[in-house]
Each structure stands twice: as structure tokens, then as C-alpha cells.
Write a protein that binds this DNA or RNA. Structure first.
Lengths: 206, 206
DNA sequence: GTCTATACAGTGATAGAC
DNA sequence: GTCTATCACTGTATAGAC
């Protein structure tokens, strides 16, 4: 780990195909159930080559999580939304957030990060900063602008952002982590967004 | 699995000490990182004895999760709380819920259940029914009584219960799952309860 | 850098004595 | 029922040829 956990920028050629193969297999089956043999096969390389790029299975795993964490949350933004149209803007934020957080890949990364939190304590930090931390900051920014615009009544924007996110997760997110439901379709996703925004506005709207 | 996943009732003697040892080791390190040798050592028994009681590592693991899931949530109740004192009662529910859900052992079971959801799909169901399902039913019952008593304004009690739980989890619960914070102390727990109840009452109080 | 082949440790599971 | 000893196997990791 350590060294290449920072190597989020995509390497080229063989290293890239190894990372891609590792990503597919790890996300599908977790850490323990995957062997370096399997990854080598999937990558069309030999095990020795894997070890030429990543000095251990743990390091390869760390590199995958860091990369995926970045990739999925990089694009989340709420900067251009109009704070005067609170309800519409919150709904848009809600949909973007849920589409991101409930996507099968994001769920898989989240699941594995939780699973290996004991073995790799730093992994949780990497994931949190790349994901939840970033989305919260974006939402907090919007709430501040809405408060200034006079469309919301919020004293603690950071806390309110956390609560909005909590409402959005609802029980869909935990249930997805446990694999109790198949991936949410657009309709369920919309229903969850609407219900969360309604309650949030009942609490903080004017 | 299958067979003895229903055997929640505590066996006696050796079987009990094996289950207890398996619980300690699995909760501490997860499924993949624990060997049957380690459990046998911890139980003060031989591996052969383990296999006399549980026909595979998977079955032993399933028995542990079912037992722990039951154990932690069995006592959760909101039946005796006064719906006319909404705020005080909700605060009490909140404290009980958080004390339960954020306890290190419950977190550990939750974490492992998520971790192994891919390998053991039934495990998530067992956990959900023993835990979240039960707490939600209790809270939903209280919200219904409060609505009848006229102290809350709720149309969909089930949905509101889910949202209350979501607010309670906040970001403490996900952060605990990722091992980002040390176990929450009484003060943090109280702050989380208060903040969730405040927002919930802003949305559904009168 | 990349391969094949292999060393070596550790795993889940079982046979057989008591 | 419980133990010791051992099985067959798979895992990570490396050596050496090209």
C-alpha cells in the first residue's frame, strides 16, 4: 500500500490493464475471495508481472480503491444550481447524489472498503475523502447560498448537509450494501429523492 | 449454513464455547482472515471437534451472525413510551437506538454482514430482519400512537420511521463502519440524538 | 519487462486412536 | 466426543531463462 495509493493518475499499457483487471475482479468478489492468479489470468499477464508493478496483493488492492473512489465522485457538483429555485435544485442534487451513490460500482467499492476497514485502516480515509466528504462540501455550499438567498432557514449548514445526505441514503443505501435488493431503477431512485426533499423542506423550508 | 442458521437458541457445553470463540474471532477480524485453526485454539478445542458440531466454516459463520443479530436487537422496544411527551419519548428512542446500533459489537456484525453479502446472500436477510426491521416496526408503532394522540403530523408512518432512523444514523454510522472514528462516547451519542430529533420535529411536529 | 516453473506457508477438512 | 496427525489443495511470492 502506502506508495502507490497516491498513484491515482492512470498508468499506461500493462500496468493499466492490470489495474483494470484487478478492479473488475475485486469489485465483483471482494479481497479475500480473489487470488493473484485470477487477476493475472484476467489481465492476460503472469503473476510475476503483477508483482513487478505492485509489490503485494494489498498494495494492488489499495491502488484500485483509491482510483475508483476518485473516479466516481470527481464529477459531483452543485455549483451551478439556482438557490432561488430551492425545491427543483434540491431535487436535482438528490438525483445526482443517488445515481452516484447507488450505482453498482460505487456500492461495490463502498462494500469492500467497509469489509477491509479492519485490515486496511487508511482505506476508509481515502474513500471518505474522495466520496462523502466531497459531496457534503458541495451540498453545504448550496445550502449556504440558499440561506443567503432567503429560501432556506438553516443555522448549521454543515449539519444540515449531513442530514440531507442521511435522508437521501434512507434505507435504500444500507439495503444495497447488504445486497437485499437488486440495483435501484430510475423510478425508485426518483421516489427516494422526492421523499427526502419533501421532509428536508418541511424541516428547513420557509 | 442453512440448517444451523436457525439454531439461535444457545447450545450448551463445548458447542457453546466454540460459538463464543468463533464470535470473538470473526467479529474481530472478519471471515476471510480467520482460520479454523485460530478458532479451535481460541475455543480450547481441536479442529476435529469444531467439525463435529459445524460441518463447514461457512455454517459456523452463519450461526454466529444469526445469534449475534438476534442478541443485540431483541431488547429494543418503544412500547411503553408516552406519545403525549413526544420530544422526550423520541429522545429516549433515539438514545436507545444509537446505543444499540453504534455498539462496537453491533458495528462489527454489521460490517461483516456487508463484507460477506456477496458470498452469503441469505446472511443480509437474517441480519436485516433481526435488526433494522425490528427497530423500524417499534418506531413506526410509536409514531402511529403519537399521530393518534395528535402530537405528530404524519401521513406515512413507515416512511417517517425510516427517515427518523436515517437521521439517527447520520454520518456517524457509516463512519463507524469504515472505522474512521473510535467508538462514540455518551456525549457524541447524545448530540447525535438531539440533532436528529430536532430536525424530525421541525418536519413532523406541531 | 515478461514469461514458466516452483518454493513454501497456510488453509479447510478428515482418518483413526482413545 | 475429543484428540493428534495428516491429507490434498490453494495461496502468495520468487528464481531464473529469455
Amino acid at each position: 500500500m502506502g506508495e502507490s495509493m497516491a498513484a491515482v493518475t492512470a498508468p499506461t499499457g500493462k500496468a493499466e490493464s492490470i489495474l483494470a483487471a484487478a478492479q473488475r475482479t475485486f469489485l465483483a468478489s471482494g479481497f479475500g475471495a480473489v487470488s493473484m492468479d485470477a487477476i493475472a489470468r484476467e489481465a492476460g499477464a503472469s503473476k510475476a508481472t503483477l508483482y513487478a508493478y505492485f509489490s503485494s496483493k494489498e498494495e494492488l488492492f489499495g491502488a484500485v480503491v483509491a482510483r475508483e473512489g476518485e473516479r466516481y465522485f470527481r464529477d459531483f457538483s452543485a455549483g451551478e444550481l439556482d438557490p432561488r429555485e430551492v425545491k427543483a435544485s434540491l431535487l436535482e442534487i438528490a438525483r445526482r447524489f443517488l445515481a452516484l451513490v447507488l450505482s453498482p460500482d460505487a456500492i461495490a467499492v463502498n462494500r469492500i472498503t467497509i469489509a477491509e476497514a479492519v485490515r486496511f485502516p487508511q482505506l476508509g480515509e481515502v474513500f471518505w475523502r474522495a466520496g462523502p466528504e466531497r459531496t457534503r462540501a458541495q451540498i453545504e455550499g448550496f445550502l449556504n447560498r440558499a440561506t443567503e438567498a432567503g429560501t432556506l432557514d438553516i443555522a448549521d449548514a454543515r449539519g444540515a448537509a449531513e442530514q440531507f445526505i442521511a435522508l437521501l441514503r434512507g434505507d435504500i443505501h444500507p439495503r444495497q450494501l447488504l445486497r437485499l435488493d437488486k440495483p435501484a431503477d430510475a423510478m425508485e431512485l426518483d421516489a427516494a429523492a422526492t421523499s427526502a426533499v419533501d421532509t428536508f423542506l418541511r424541516a428547513f423550508g420557509k
